[in-house]
Each structure stands twice: as structure tokens, then as C-alpha cells.
Design a protein around this nucleic acid. Sequence first.
DNA 1: CTTGACTCCCAAAACGTTTTGGAGAATCTT
DNA 2: AAGATTCTCCAAAACGTTTTGGGAGTCAAG
Lengths: 336, 336
Amino acid sequence: MANLKQLAQSLGLSITTVSRALDGYADVSAATRERVRDAADKVGYRPNASARRLRRQRAELVAVTLPSDPGHIGPPHFLDMLSGCAEHLAAAGLNLVIAPVPRGESELDICRRFVDGRRVDAMLLVRTKRKDERVEFLQSRGIPFVTNGRTESLLPHPYIDGDGFAGFRAATLRFHAAGHRRIGHIAGPQEYYFAHDRCRGWRAAMEECGLATDLCAEGAPLEQGGYLAALELLRQPSRPTALVCATDEMAIGALRALREVDGGNQISIVGHDDLAMGAFTSPPLSTMRMTGENLGASFASLLLRAIAGEPAEELQELHAIEFVDRDSHRHPAKAA
Amino acid sequence: MANLKQLAQSLGLSITTVSRALDGYADVSAATRERVRDAADKVGYRPNASARRLRRQRAELVAVTLPSDPGHIGPPHFLDMLSGCAEHLAAAGLNLVIAPVPRGESELDICRRFVDGRRVDAMLLVRTKRKDERVEFLQSRGIPFVTNGRTESLLPHPYIDGDGFAGFRAATLRFHAAGHRRIGHIAGPQEYYFAHDRCRGWRAAMEECGLATDLCAEGAPLEQGGYLAALELLRQPSRPTALVCATDEMAIGALRALREVDGGNQISIVGHDDLAMGAFTSPPLSTMRMTGENLGASFASLLLRAIAGEPAEELQELHAIEFVDRDSHRHPAKAA
DNA sequence: CTTGACTCCCAAAACGTTTTGGAGAATCTT
DNA sequence: AAGATTCTCCAAAACGTTTTGGGAGTCAAG
């Protein structure tokens, strides 16, 4: 409500002293420090953010880019993650701003605008692609950033990711151990790293078991995409007896396809993400999830450390995947 | 990459002229304007955001508060809405920042911090409560804001909301017309305006039809809450034959309860929100949705108009509710 | 040749903070 | 008692922009 000058005047002190008192410098006596702080509390003084940012040459802002295609808006727990991240950043005096992608502009344009306008101190990128131009741009500019998901960039960069390869390999091997031989994969768009990674995991397991890898269909990473991809696999002359789906949303779409085609409850299925919804599908959806809790806090921590200048190599977290067993993966490996 | 001073120097012009040329003022000749703009493009000049904000006394920022309880994080299309809103705000030079609520602080504290630190020009509030302290605070401070959902505040304020009363009344009357007499309501937490509004709609219809209003159970606005509430209603001596659920997520939880108790497909059910998931439940979930498209753009427009000083009365949008009929509402009104 | 209008440009102030580089007084050292 | 040290405090610069209030020219009219 007031500014430093007024506060200083009312106390009969200089602006300098008031500022330093509030920041807790040792070169102002304990007595005045107290006096200043009391007065500041009483008038409800808050430093003007813009002025501080200008003087400190820091934006006190971190931007997170939202993918533009509706529905493609990142993992389902995205909002919880954002919230947690924003909360921990706030504790360090940083706010999280949303960087949407307007029609006609690329995600790269957005990065450019935020970075070149010195609007942010760092960026958070979600839904990385295998070749991600945003990553290359930010690396060339030397702006700190963290991605949710790896990329195939040559230079290392900070990221947090789940080990989709290991997870999908394990899930596929488990179906194999349960007697399944025709195990299909419902894949997400392969330009995304996560989708490609998970597909590779399934493929690796199939090859280890000496099985053909033709039971694979790709679709948009949503219910509809999973539904269509499942129908495609079910049209095959020799149907799969188990399905490994890139995401829970795709798996839920696939469940509907199964219900329509063979009444359901014949084909095993497993998803990934541990959507809350999964416990309420019919049958309840077995799934996988990245280990580790409070992802948002991890992102915030990595961002802060990246801003502090830690090298990228030390800012990479690859989390293991754990099974969340419900019912949908238990169907027997009958012949079709 | 450069600042105004350097740019001016390289052109042999004053800072003033360069600044005004870039802003398109008429008092700089067309020739120099062109020259300045070309040079600015070439060096990729972007004005320093902090400096402009300080000088203009505007934060160029709008904050949206996220409810803290995980899962309670607003309506399901929330992220799409945010994205759309941020996009349209960006076109007006405003960015959207996320204001999470750290543990131990109230949503009011957050508002206070953002407003008193002059960090934002306006605020966007979601998931309003009937008595919402944030609204009262912002009104007392005279800060522009828009809410997603009405409140019972005495002073009018800008909002966008769906007419939950009319929607739930209509849904209930439709069940009555289809022969249902025991129509239950699965309600959200009544301190939220939307939950109370929807409950009132159901209740009004029941009373119009001369039916008792005791088949009502309240739960958290999530799958689990709907599941538990449905179980409660199904334990009643005289079961409902139809359920009107405050949200789709609750309805999906209720669907599971129905499957467990009577094998499903006996009791009609309808939700609200038109979650994409609803098309893939078993049975596909009939639901309702607020009319109007690109909600985010509407929020952005209202925010801009509120900042421009338009009176609150002209910034209120109450949208009609439309049915989205799938299968779950068609079960006959058998005797229990 | 003056006057006024018009065009094009600029110096300087202002926004509210943080930080630099001391200044003056009090206290300690020798 | 003089010098060194410590303790408090402060004036002024700086961050990069926008905006105010002109100041030179040029030109046409009187």
C-alpha cells in the first residue's frame, strides 16, 4: 500500500536503511530493524515486484509451455504437478506463468518471446518430442530449463522422466510369463519421446521372447485414439490376448472396443499413469506409474538448481515404473 | 538481446525517438520509423518487461488461484480453459500466473500477497464457495477480478457460471416424465456454490412433482466421493431408480457402485461436465454441459473489460445447460 | 521579416527498488 | 591521546523503459 520512500519518511530514516532493515542486513542495528519491521507490518508494506525485478535483473518468473492441441495437454496429473511446482517455486520467490501457444505460432516462438523479452528466469517444458526444437533453442540461448520427459538432444539437459522402456518391457514380460503369446501394443504418437520409449520397451520384450512385433497400432494419446487402435488390432486374423497401452486414457478407450467386440473380460489389458478414473472402469484398470511422490516439488528443485548453475548432468532424474494391479490384466491367455 | 540505449546509439538517435518509433507514434517520421523497426528486428530487440512494468505501473500479469486440496482442482476442462484464457490474455500483453496455496496458508493469504505486492493487475478465481472470503477481499481492495462460479456476495461481481439450478431441475423433471419416482441426488460439498446450486435444482424439481427429497447423499466431488454416496443411497430400504450426480466424476464412481450392487444396467444415471471419459464408461454416461465454446476466451475478455473499468453488472455470464445424451439415463423406471 | 503552424526530434524525469561506497560517531587498542 | 576498528546510517547510482515538455528547424501566410 505504501512504498519505501513513504515508509522511510514516516520513520525518519533513509530509504537505504529501511530497505536493508527489511532484508535483515547486519549493518542496521537490532533496534531500528525491529522498529522498521513493525512499521512495515503495520502499513502492510510489500516491495513493488516490478521495481525489484528491474533492479535485480531477475524476472522472478518461470514459464511452463502448454502444448496447444486440446487434449494433448500433458499427463493427467499435470495440474497437480503444476500446482506443487508453483508452490515450491513460490517459496523461493518465483512465480509460475503459463505460456500458451496461440494459433499460428509455434512453441518455439513462445519460448523466444519469453526468453528474449527477459520475462523469465527459466522454463519448464512438458511433453517433449524426440527431436524437440524448444530444447535446442533454449540450449543455444543458455537459459536454464527442465523438461518433463527426455529428448534425443545431443547435449545433456535437465529432465525428469519415467523409465517407460523398462516399465513396458516388464509389463510385456509379465504377460508372457502368464502364458500370453499374442501381446499387442497400443502406441502413442511416436514423435513424442515417452510414446516411443514405451513402444521400444514392448518391442524389446517381444523380441526377447521370440515373438513377432506386428501387433502394434498407433493413435492419439486419448480415449478415442485407444479405441480406434484397439479396433484395428481386434480386426487382425489372429487377435491379441493381451494389450499393453501407452496411457490409461488410451486403455480406457480400448476397454470400450473390447466390450463391443467380444463382450469384454476376455482380453487382458494394462495402461500407464494410474489415473484415478482407472479404479472405476469395468473391469478396474491395471496400470503402471512413475515412482516418486510430489513430482512438482522435484521439478521446482531442479529448476532452482538449474538457475543456480548446476550442470545438466546432475539434474537428470529417471524414475522407475511400478505396477498398480487391479483386475484388467488378469484374464487368462486363451486361444482366440 | 540489446536495450534501448544501445539500439539508439547504433542508430544515432535518442532513446526517446527509438521508443516512440517502435510504439508507432506519429511524431517520428515514417522514414526513421522504418529504419528503427528494421534495426530492432535485426538485433531481435524486445523491451525489457520489468522496466516497462515499473514505468507503466502495471504488472502485465493476471493470477489464477488453484484450490489446494489435490483433486479438488476445479472442473475437468480446467486446463483447457486456462490455456485458452492465457492465450487471449497474451494477445493483450498479459500473462497468466499460477497462484498455488502453500500448506498453512489460506487462499486469502495468497490473494493478499499478489494484490498488495502489486504483482497482478487482476485475478481469476475458480471453484467459488457460497461465502467466498477471496471475493470479499478483492472487492474491498478494488482489484479487478472474475470468478468461475457465482457466490452469495451482496455486491455484484463479474463471473461466468452455468445455470446448474435449471440444468438439474430439467434433468430431474425428465426422469420424472420417464416414469421415475424415486430420483436420488449425489451432491457435491454444499459450501461450493455450484454444488449447492445443482442440489437446489434437483430439490426444486422433486418438490414440484410432490416427491420426497430425502434421497440425497453428499460426497467429495471425485470418483470416490460419488462411489460412497451412491452406496449410501443404495442401502436405503426403497432404492432410487435414477440418480442425478453433481459431476461426471462422481457419476463414474456411482456407476461402479451400481455394478457392485445390482449388476448395473438397472438404475438410470446422469452426470454433469461432459468429460471425454464419459463416452467410454460402461454404460456410456449421459451428462450435461454448459453451453458456449471457448470458455477461456470468455474469461479473458471479461478480465480485460474488468481491468478497463466496466461495472460488474455488465460482466456476468450465466450459461444455459444442455443435455449430452448417451446411454446411462435410459434405464426404465422399474420398481425396486 | 515576422508570425504561427507543423514536423521531427530529444533531454530529463519518473517508476521503486537494491547496492555501492563511503561518512560520522562510538568504541577499542596501544 | 592518537590511531584503528566497529557500528549505524545514508546519498547517489543504477536497472530500462515511457512520458512530459519542450527545441530546433522548415514552410507558408501575413
